[in-house]
Computed example of a mutant assay.
Amino acid sequence: MKIIKFLVILILLVSCSEREKHPYTFYYWKTKLSLDNEEKKALDKTTVPILYTRFFDINKVNGRFQPLAVITKDESFETDKQIVPTVFITNQTFVNISGEEIHFLAESIHHLIDKKSKEYKLKTNHEIQIDCDWTAGTRDDYFAFLKELHKISGKDIDCTLRLHQVKDKAIMGIPPVKKVFLMCYSTSSPLETSDKNSILDVNILKSYLSKLEDYPIKEIEVALPIYSWGIVTNHLGRHKLINALSQNDLKNPNFKKISDHEIEIQKDGFYFGNYLNKGFTIKVEKITNDQLRDVIAFLDKKIPLFNIVYYQLDTKFVVNQNFKLMSKFQSDF
């Protein structure tokens, strides 16, 4: 009997040691829905049966709501994952908005999501996610919109949560949702002169989230960055952002290496879809696995149970990444 009990305990320990502490998936943030082989392989390995998929953006232009960059789809976009429609809404959309406009906006978003889901035969689930960097001045109207969208759509509404909205929760308010997605990136502006990594500075993140365990909404998922970009600086010290730039992109005979992450342009020309002059510099910012592990270890002490959503699903960012290692397979004992 003792041997049998020992074997049962051993099996349980092995099973627990292989359990994934933080299941993971991705955001999909391209306007055209398509998947190449590397993206399909990365998505197939995910351990959350969901893909958070951006459907369109909303902005207010000349007093009118406008959907921008609405998704299209080609035949390569095939997945067994459930799709959660995600909509980015600019904060200015909620400036001086009336109650009637809130209803109209919620209704319009619901109908456009429904239209695109049916048109492209997307297997959506019971959720809609809203991404908005609301402020103290727009919070009441934004929160009213979230309630209205829930009422009209009949879906569970969740929303993104930025670091400053956690730190200043007394001013920023608590959104009327059951689940939030903590965006652990964009810790500073890439268009400001700084020696910090603007995608993610772990010390800044820890400062903003020092009281995360006190946040009233307890169902928190974590969005982590795996993307990179390039910051172009001209002769006047002004900055321009080029998305999805990597260190490999800096290998060009017209570039002079300044450091491991920065080059100086030696010849005027078109680079990465932009006309850039001699003397301009390009600095690539990226995220290391050590940074991600540091953030996960910190959050483990604040909110032990959470899923991870990596931003974003793109071959450039998922090749050679061991996401299972990042999401920390370890014992729960």
Rank of each mutant, 00 (worst) to 15 (best):
N252Y: 08
R238V: 02
K257D: 12
E262G: 04
S246M: 07
H235T: 10
N254Y: 09
R238L: 09
I265E: 07
K257Q: 15
L241C: 04
L236P: 01
K251H: 09
D260T: 14
K256Y: 08
I242A: 01
N254M: 02
N252R: 11
L250W: 05
G237F: 11
L241V: 13
N252Q: 12
K251G: 00
N234L: 09
L241W: 08
N248K: 02
E262S: 11
E262P: 03
S246D: 11
N252T: 09
K251R: 14
K256N: 11
H235P: 01
K267T: 15
K240F: 03
I265S: 03
N248H: 02
A244H: 02
D268I: 04
H261E: 12
G237P: 04
N234D: 15
L245E: 05
I258V: 10
N243E: 14
S259R: 03
D268Y: 03
N243I: 06
I258K: 04
Q247Y: 12
K267V: 13
D249S: 02
Q247I: 12
K240Q: 13
I242V: 12
H235W: 10
S246C: 07
I265C: 05
K256F: 07
D268R: 05
L236C: 06
S246E: 08
R238S: 09
L241N: 07
P253S: 13
D260G: 05
F255Y: 11
G237R: 13
K257G: 07
H235D: 13
K257V: 15
I258N: 05
F255N: 00
